[in-house]
Design a protein around this nucleic acid. Structure first.
Length: 495
RNA sequence: GUCGGGGUAGCUCAGUGGUAGAGCCCAGCACUCAUAAAGCUGUGGUCGUGGGUCCAAUUCCCACCCCCGACACCA
């Protein structure tokens, strides 16, 4: 394993407030970052905001705001959400690098990568024909059309717009991309396999060049194309560059080498982003002569109940911050990490949240901490190094460690979390079977020994939760260490 | 339409060529440790339908039905 590790989320587009999918992506990336740090890696953890493009331009205009003011406000929502999700908070955390695509260093990097692609012959100018629906007053893509007409305005003829745009020669990179997914030395893995298959199918069908600029007269909110003041970069061309701009590329070659070349660069994204990350971004990197990403981890969507899409118009959107405010940071992390499928779409509902919270946090984990700590504190029994070390050698501890490693190494945090709850359940069973609270009254030494073992369980559980529920992990460890009863339950049961 | 994934307990999902598993829900037991409630035990499924291969299929193969995803300019 490499001694450095790079991980990034996709940069959320700031035309809306954070939703559950963002929270999911941030939290999962945070867990992986913490895990790698625990493994001894120096970790670079990146996120930020994507702030150019037509939609932002329009949204700002609609709200009658200056664009910069508008994106400052929206970027702040994302930035302030991070600590609420426990990102980069507390011991064991990895500091976040937050890049905005309006940052000076990002703009520099975007221009440089453009230049390099251009120097390598991957950028050219040609006429771009787009279809414009006068009814909607917007451009339509072919996939949006039904029988060649706008489904919302089927009686109107589409207007053809013909303008000059810069294009990227993705069509020449198909074979190289296919080879990249299978490369032995530095493959670009797409996780899970089903997404990789989709991408391979997509690439093998043949790739087309695509436009990477917009006329400034039509849409000025973007990074100016080097050497052509009439065009700005199409938003995602610049946005993708942020993953290396955050490292100070192109100037800071040391940091770039340390983390991008040698740091196993790992990217999280939502499933709607698979192609951008694993084909287009890799294509741009190839075009610029830069090393590929090592891994794209694709999350499913968080849906509303019944698997339907969360949307404002349906009124079924759940704000992650609202959940944090009601249940706490670790509770949201718990849900996102264990209750939501690691790679598939999964429904989120407040009922499910409450059910899972009560069953697995208040009852299982929280209650176990309470009952063990009551036994230990009221009998003055504390954990000693010997019991702790001995417990680490048990099959229970070894099995937990094995499963956690397997889960984390495969970016399946659910498996790593499941393993902890297995141990929690074993601890409860042990109490039921041995009843140390009874034993201690008839055989002090035996009872104390049993309680000490339970404390070792607790310690093991807390350590295993270090990356997943950092707040709770720290609390439990301090209860055990100081032999102190929690003043309030770890997770208060909700009615 | 083409390609890919899936249809397993009331719900959310694991899993396996040899008499089906977890969590939640529900029911019983216990309650002298624990958050006016935690715990333990248990009920519960002809593993989408119809064929086939095999001593044996939920697990492999074929067909069909249903669901989901991909099939480019959605930041």
């Amino acid at each position: 394993m490499s001694k450095t590790f790079y991980i990034t989320t996709t940069l959320p587009y700031v035309n809306a407030k954070p939703h559950m999918g963002h929270a999911l992506e941030f939290v999962r990336a945070d867990v992986v970052a913490r895990y790698k740090k625990l493994q001894g890696c120096e970790v670079f953890f990146n996120t930020g905001t994507d702030e150019h493009g037509m939609k932002i331009w329009e949204a700002a205009e609609k709200e009658g705001k200056d664009v910069m003011q508008y994106i400052d406000e929206n970027a702040a929502f994302f930035k302030t959400m991070l600590p609420k999700l426990g990102i980069s908070e507390g011991e064991g955390s990895v500091p976040i690098n937050f890049i905005r695509t309006t940052d000076e260093k990002h703009i520099k990097a975007a221009k440089e990568i453009w230049k390099r692609c251009n120097d390598n012959g991957f950028i050219y100018k040609k006429n771009y024909k787009s279809k414009y629906c006068v009814g909607c007053e917007e451009e339509k893509t072919d996939s949006e059309l039904v029988d060649g007409k706008c489904p919302l305005h089927p009686t109107r003829e589409l207007e053809l717009i013909d303008e000059e745009n810069y294009f990227f020669k993705l069509s020449e990179l198909g074979e190289k991309l296919m080879a990249l997914y299978e490369d032995e030395a530095r493959p670009c893995q797409v996780i899970p396999d089903s997404r990789l298959n989709e991408m391979k199918a997509f690439v093998s069908r043949g790739l087309q060049d695509f436009s990477i600029s917009r006329l400034k007269t039509k849409m000025p909110w973007g990074i100016e194309v080097p050497g052509d003041a009439n065009h700005v970069m199409y938003v995602w061309f610049d946005a993708l560059t942020s993953y290396i701009a955050t490292l100070g590329w192109p100037e800071d070659t040391d940091t770039f080498e340390k983390f991008w070349i040698n740091g196993d660069p790992t990217q999280y994204c939502g499933k709607d982003n698979t192609r951008f990350q694993s084909v287009i971004w890799q294509g741009i990197l190839l075009g610029a002569g830069l090393p590929n990403s090592r891994r794209i981890i694709v999350n499913g969507f968080v849906t509303a109940e019944g698997g339907v899409k969360m949307s404002k118009s349906l009124g079924n959107v759940i704000d992650p911050i609202e959940i944090v405010d009601e249940y706490g940071t670790d509770a949201l992390r718990y849900f996102v990490l264990r209750e939501l499928a690691p790679f598939e779409d999964t429904p989120f509902s407040k009922e499910k949240m409450k059910e899972a919270y009560n069953a697995n946090l208040a009852n299982s984990l929280g209650n176990l901490v309470s009952r063990v700590m009551r036994m230990s504190t009221s009998n003055g029994v504390s954990l000693d190094a010997e019991t702790s070390e001995k417990f680490a050698q048990t099959d229970i501890a070894k099995n937990l460690h094995e499963k956690q490693t397997k889960g984390f190494e495969n970016f399946n945090i659910q498996i790593a979390a499941d393993a902890v709850w297995e141990v929690i359940s074993l601890a409860d069973k042990l109490i039921q079977d041995t009843q140390p609270f009874k034993t201690i009254k008839v055989d002090k030494e035996k009872g104390e020994g049993e309680i000490r073992i339970l404390l070792a369980y607790l310690e093991t559980i807390a350590i295993a939760l270090f990356t997943i529920l950092p707040e709770s992990s720290a609390k439990i460890l301090s209860y055990v260490k100081d032999n102190k009863m929690p003043e309030t339950p770890l997770f208060v049961r909700k009615d």
